[in-house]
Amino acid sequence: MSATPDQVLDCSGLACPMPILKTKKAIDDMEAGQVLQMISTDAGSTADVAAWTDRTGHALLEASEADGKYVFLIEKKG
């Protein structure tokens, strides 16, 4: 069972690097332990979100793709 997001960020239609820039901004405004759901249509997001969480230390709980939509669940770490 996946975590319930505290906030949803829809980046559909946006090209690189906007999904990552907006994800960073959204996470900065959240509390540690909260979960962000980010939705993107940029196929590069799968690699980029994983790279971003790897570098920033936030947890990528789930990544899925359906009908050209990429959905990520990211938990903010303290």
Partner: peptide
């Protein structure tokens, strides 16, 4: 440059 900032660089 903007992505680097997002990656905490």
């Amino acid at each position: 440059a903007t992505s680097a900032a997002a990656l905490d660089m």
